[in-house]
Amino acid sequence: MADRTLRVCALYPDLMNIYADRGNLLLLERRCGWRGIGFQVTAAALGDVIDPDAHDLFYLGGGQDRDQVLCAQDLVDVKREALHAAVDRGAAVLAVCGGYQLLGHSYELGEQSIPGVGLVDLRTVRAEGPRLIGNIAIEVDLPGLDGPRVLAGFENHGGRTTLGTDERPLGRVLRGHGNDGHSGLEGVQRGHVIGTYMHGPLLPKNVWFADWLVQAALALDVPLAPLDDELERAAHASARHAAGL
């Protein structure tokens, strides 16, 4: 496996980084390093054209409203075709929080409508009600795993997201709010495209999921070599406990 390299494209890392999103990239880098998998990260800023064949995983984090609007327009104008081509080829996408809201058709913010990049079938509306904030835990069932697993994290969003009828959520809410606070659904999963409101450093709280993502992005048939994950398991337990699980 030593000749493999995980090629990550970080979308707008200087703008979409509000909840310490770089923790996810750091986690991937370290774990690849410990396993002898190469790791390379390319930043794609506003205006940058991306090569659909040059990346195995795209990461899109959360941002402030004003930055999110800038990035949404750029995604549609500059990067849309390449992203679709990359996903069709099997590249993975992890979009969290504000990034998740840009994966679908649109995000309605009062009078303003932000365009989505259309990788999945979902719509988001900024609701009148309170922001949905707190620790969250969901149960997910991902292809290739031997049964349901738990993701634990933190959510903080004003938008309510509705999935299209044929779209599959990432998981079922065990504790917390999820996509809209009432459907019991959280996130979206279509193949290797993942969107979730579990924001910021989601991967450090759930290294099993980080490993799943790497395996998916690299299209590996065999599971990754195990690591000494004692602290990682304790951190996962701590996040689950915080969510009340």
Binding site: G23, L26, L27, D228, L231, E232, A234, A237, S238
Partner: peptide, 20 residues
């Protein structure tokens, strides 16, 4: 209350795990 997550952060910051 989130001791383990602090420890993990330090591990990924490059502090040897046996010192944590």
């Amino acid at each position: 209350s989130r001791a383990a997550e602090m420890a993990l952060r330090l591990k990924y910051a490059g502090i040897p795990q046996e010192r944590i």
